[in-house]
Simulated assay, not measured.
Amino acid sequence: MGYDPDFLAAPVDPPRAHVTGDLLDYTHFSLELDPGRRLAAWVAWNVDGDRLHPGESIPRSGTRFRADPRVPEDHQTLDPVYADNRLDRGHVARRADLLWGPLDEALRANSDSFFFPNITPQMDDFNQERLGGSWGMLEAAILSEDGLRPRRLSLFGGPVLADDDPPYRDLVRIPREHWKVVVYRLDGALRFRCFLLTQQVDPGLRGAVGYLDEFDTWALPLTDLEARTGLVFPGLTGASGDDVGDARATADRPVDAMPAPGPLLVRNARDVEW
């Protein structure tokens, strides 16, 4: 039950937020709910790639989004935020990631994924195409690596809860950015990669987002991610992952043309050196 920090045969603790929130365990994932922002500060989940059920074998139809009765409703972002607009109820821990193990366990995970603490407001074109596609592309790439045995991942993700996120309906501030950390063991070594994706909330509320453009996916160093999110990742101490700007030569990117370490625009999963 909940995120297992020992899933990769080495302890990988979840992030720490600067604000103490509601800690909640679900089937295959856990999260910390920021009561002031009414959204998850972070979500942590495990993926057993050798025991995943195909997403279409466990339908999502008929499963409703709902408040978690264990915490006050005013700590959660609920249906009134999503009524009569282009905002989708976007999963943080992807439903498809959680559908592993015995069938009854996978069914519980499917249902748990629809609790509102695991949901963030996402523009429809961001959620329905770009987010699932980009995140799924990266996870599929690492799960296919020959040195990944067993085929297991631990993941952290969530919205970037920035102070200048635009307010909406006096109920929530809409995050412009979402982040994910993929943790894995490749050829016996514990490794991780950090990613960031932005959404354009509304033409009247654009604001500057630095090196990010609409719906671009970036790999970035852990120090950049910590600075952007205000989170600390103690579980990644000793793991390899801060060489984002190194060792990324491809047919289209010779060694002498590679940039210095820093954010890397990910156009294809092959851009990432796992």
Rank of each mutant, 00 (worst) to 15 (best):
V266I: 15
D125T: 10
D48S: 07
D6A: 15
A83E: 15
R253I: 00
D88L: 06
P159L: 07
Y3T: 13
P15L: 07
F233E: 02
F126N: 12
F65Y: 14
R108Q: 14
D13Y: 06
L31A: 05
P14D: 05
P35E: 04
M123E: 14
A239S: 12
S240A: 09
N46W: 08
R89G: 01
R37W: 02
F29E: 02
W274Q: 06
L103G: 02
Y82P: 02
N268P: 02
I142E: 02
R248D: 04
D13C: 05
V19D: 04
G210Q: 14
R176N: 09
V92I: 15
D252N: 11
R38E: 03
L24S: 02
W179D: 00
A10I: 15
F192T: 04
A9Y: 12
P121A: 09
D88T: 10
Y82I: 02
D50V: 11
G132I: 03
E226M: 09
P69T: 05
D34S: 03
S111Y: 09
A260D: 14
P59E: 08
M258Y: 01
R248I: 13
D79I: 00
V182I: 15
R60A: 10
P150N: 11
D13E: 12
V266S: 03
T20R: 12
P167F: 10
A219H: 06
D79C: 00
L265S: 09
L52P: 07
F215E: 06
R38A: 06
D79W: 00
H178R: 13
V201P: 01
R185F: 10
G235E: 07
E139K: 11
G55W: 06
P175M: 11
R151F: 11
S30F: 07
V266G: 01
L205G: 00
W218N: 00
P59T: 12
A251H: 12
D246H: 09
V181T: 14
L23T: 07
M258V: 11
T20Q: 10
P11N: 13
R253G: 01
R253M: 10
R89S: 03
W179L: 08
L222D: 05
E226T: 08
A189K: 11
Y82R: 00
R253P: 00
E56Y: 11
R60Q: 12
L236G: 06
G204T: 13
A140K: 14
A17W: 06
R152N: 09
D202M: 12
P72C: 05
Q122C: 08
V209G: 02
D165V: 08
P234Q: 03
S30N: 06
D22H: 12
G36H: 06
R89W: 06
S30P: 08
